[in-house]
Design a protein around this nucleic acid. Structure first.
Length: 490
RNA sequence: CGGGGUGUAGCGUAGCCCGGUAUCGCGCUUGGUUUGGGACCAAGAGGUCGUAGGUUCGAAUCCUGCCACCCCGACCA
C-alpha cells in the first residue's frame, strides 16, 4: 500500500474512494452496490444518529419500527410514488431454497413461490400509511409523530460508498396532521432540524430551499431540501423533508373526524437523512492527508502519543497522562492514550491524521523535563509546544475552536463558489468551474430539462426566503420573479 | 443499462504479446535492536493467478461465457 493518498486535485473521486477505505470507514461487499460499514465509520454514524434522534425526541417524535417487506400491491396505491420507485425495487418472489439435484449448490425452490411478491422497502410511506389507516379515527389521534431508523434498498445502477449504495441506513419520519398548515409547519420544522444538525454538528453549511417539480419526491406536493457544496464544486443533497398533502391519506383511505364532526383526510409529511451524510461529512472537510472530522462527531477527539525509550520513561509519561485522560473524560472528551508498542510515533501521527482525529498530543522525555506537551490540530496541521499545566482547558477550548474553524472554512468555500450569473454565456463558463450558480429561470420544466441537457446542471433548489427580483431566464429570456440555484450534483 | 478499462497472497504489482505451476515491495508471524513525522536486521508463514468452460501433453498466458471493480454517459437520497 502506498503511503500517501491520491490528491484531490489529481483525481477527486479516487481520493474519496481511497480515503473511505484507508480511514477504515467502509468497504465494498460481495453484493454489488452494498457496503460494509466498518467499526470506525459506524461509530461516526452512531454519533450522527444520537444527535439527530435527540433533536427528533425534543420536538415530540417517537421511534417505531415497520417491516422490511412491503406487499407489492401497496406500492401501486399512490400513482406517482410507484412511478418514482418502481425501477429500482428489489423483489422477493420465493421463500425457500433447496439442494440442486444437478449439482452441489442450492437453487430457488420453484414450489415455494409467493402468492404476492414482496418489495424490499425503498421507503416506507405505503406500509406506514396502511397502518395509519387503523391508528387514526379522530382529531384526538393527531398529530401522529413517528420516526424510524431503518435500512432501505434502492437498486441503483451506479453506486459509490456512502454517496449512493443499493442498501443504505437512514431515518424516515412519517407524520399525520389534522390541518394543512400544521403539516407544512412540521415539514419546515424538520428541515430546520436538518439544517441545524448539518451546521452545528457536521460543521457543514447548507442551503435550505424547495425543489422544483422535476426534482420533487414521488408522491409529495412539496419537497424541501438542504443542499451542501462539496470541495470539487458539486452539490450534494443532504436531506429532504416532504409535504405530502393528502396524497397518501387518499391512497390509503386515512380519514379522521374533526372537532366539528366532519370527516376529512389527514395531512402528511415525511422526512429523511441517510448514511449519505457520511459522504458529505468526508467530502466537506477532508484534505490530502486524510479525514478531517468535526470534534462533535469524531469518535476519538484527542489522541495522546507517548515518545519514549524503555519502560522507565513510559512510566514517567503514564504518571502525567493518566490523570489528564481522566480529567478530559470527566469533561466529556473522548481520549485515546495510544501506548501500543508495535508502531513508531511517526506512524501513529500519520495514522491518526488519516482518521481525522481533531487533536493529537505528543509527550516525550524532553517534555517531561521541560514541563511541556506538544499539541497538533488536525484542521490546520499546526503544532505547538505548550506548558503541561493547564493543557486540559486548552484541549477543550481547541476542540471548540476546530469545530468553528472548519465550519467557517467550509462556509467561505461555499461563498467564494457561489455566483450570480445573468447571461447564458456566463452560465456555461461558470458551471465548468463548479459551485452554485444563482440565476433566473422561467419556471418551466422544459427549460430546466434543456439546461440539464446542455450543461449537466440541475436546479438544486429555490432558496427559502428568496428575494423577489425582476429578471429574465438565463436560457430563454422569458420573465422570472426570482433566482434559483443551479449546480452539478452527485 | 450503453461505451472504455482492469482483475495475479491482506494491499500494491511483474510475468501474458511469444504456453512449461509465479516476481518484487508493503503488511503479517517470531527474535533482537529502535522510537520527537510512516524505523532497522534476521528468520518465517501466506497463491484454486476473479469465475466457469474450451483449445493443448501442458494455461496466469490463447479462445468463449459469466461475475466484480474503476472511468465516462442515462437513472437516483
Amino acid at each position: 500500500m502506498s503511503k500517501s493518498l491520491p490528491s484531490r486535485a489529481e483525481n477527486y473521486s479516487e481520493w474519496y474512494n481511497e480515503l473511505v477505505k484507508r480511514a477504515d470507514l467502509a468497504e465494498n461487499s460481495a453484493v454489488r452496490g452494498c457496503m460494509i460499514i466498518k467499526p470506525y465509520g459506524y461509530s461516526i454514524w452512531e454519533k450522527m444518529q444520537r444527535a439527530l434522534d435527540d433533536m427528533f425526541k425534543e420536538t415530540g417524535h417517537t421511534n417505531a419500527y415497520f417491516p422490511l417487506f412491503i406487499p407489492k400491491s401497496f406500492l401501486s396505491k399512490e400513482a406517482s410514488h410507484v412511478e418514482g420507485f418502481a425501477k429500482e425495487c428489489a423483489v422477493v418472489t420465493h421463500y425457500r431454497l433447496k439442494n440442486d439435484p444437478n449439482g452441489g449448490g442450492v437453487i430457488v425452490d420453484p414450489d415455494a413461490k409467493l402468492e404476492e411478491e414482496l418489495i424490499v422497502r425503498p421507503t416506507s410511506e405505503t406500509l406506514i400509511w396502511s397502518s395509519y389507516k387503523n391508528w387514526i379515527q379522530s382529531y384526538r389521534d393527531l398529530p401522529l409523530l413517528i420516526n424510524q431508523w431503518a435500512n432501505v434498498v434502492r437498486w441503483e445502477m451506479r453506486t459509490r460508498l456512502f454517496l449512493r449504495t443499493a442498501e443504505f441506513l437512514w431515518q424516515e419520519g412519517h407524520t399525520a396532521h389534522a390541518t394543512k398548515k400544521e403539516a407544512i409547519d412540521e415539514t419546515e420544522q424538520m428541515l430546520e432540524i436538518y439544517a441545524e444538525f448539518a451546521e452545528t454538528f457536521m460543521a457543514m453549511p447548507v442551503l435550505k430551499g424547495i425543489k422544483t417539480a422535476n426534482e420533487r419526491f414521488a408522491g409529495a406536493e412539496e419537497t424541501y431540501c438542504i443542499e451542501a457544496l462539496m470541495q470539487d464544486g458539486k452539490a450534494l443533497q443532504a436531506g429532504t423533508s416532504h409535504f405530502l398533502g393528502q396524497n397518501f391519506a387518499k391512497a390509503f383511505d386515512v380519514k379522521f373526524l374533526s372537532k366539528e364532526n366532519k370527516l376529512d383526510y389527514v395531512w402528511g409529511t415525511s422526512w429523511g437523512v441517510s448514511t449519505r451524510l457520511m459522504g458529505a461529512l468526508i467530502m466537506a472537510h477532508s484534505d490530502d492527508q486524510g479525514l478531517v472530522l468535526p470534534p462533535k462527531l469524531a469518535p476519538i477527539q484527542v489522541v495522546i502519543v507517548p515518545i519514549y525509550k524503555g519502560d522507565e520513561q513510559l512510566n514517567l509519561i503514564k504518571e502525567k497522562i493518566d490523570p489528564l485522560v481522566k480529567a478530559l473524560k470527566k469533561q466529556g472528551v473522548s481520549v485515546k492514550f495510544d501506548i501500543s508498542e508495535n508502531q513508531s510515533p511517526g506512524f501513529k501521527f500519520a495514522e491518526y491524521e488519516l482518521k481525522g482525529v481533531p487533536i493529537r498530543l505528543a509527550i516525550g522525555n524532553r517534555d517531561i523535563e521541560n514541563g511541556t506537551i506538544e499539541l497538533a490540530r488536525r484542521d490546520t496541521r499546526e503544532k505547538m509546544s505548550l506548558p503541561f499545566d493547564g493543557i486540559e482547558q486548552v484541549v477543550v477550548d481547541t476542540l471548540h475552536d476546530i469545530q468553528e474553524k472548519i465550519y467557517a472554512k467550509a462556509f467561505a468555500f461555499r461563498e467564494s463558489n457561489t455566483h450570480e450569473v445573468n447571461t447564458w454565456e456566463e452560465f456555461q463558463t461558470k458551471i465548468e468551474a463548479g459551485g452554485f450558480l444563482s440565476a433566473h429561470w422561467d419556471g418551466t420544466p422544459e427549460t430546466e430539462e434543456k439546461i440539464k441537457e446542455l450543461t449537466k446542471a440541475t436546479i438544486r433548489c429555490i432558496p427559502l426566503g428568496v428575494k423577489k427580483e425582476v429578471g429574465k431566464c438565463v436560457l430563454t429570456g422569458e420573465p422570472s420573479e426570482h433566482r434559483v440555484i443551479f449546480a452539478r450534483t452527485y
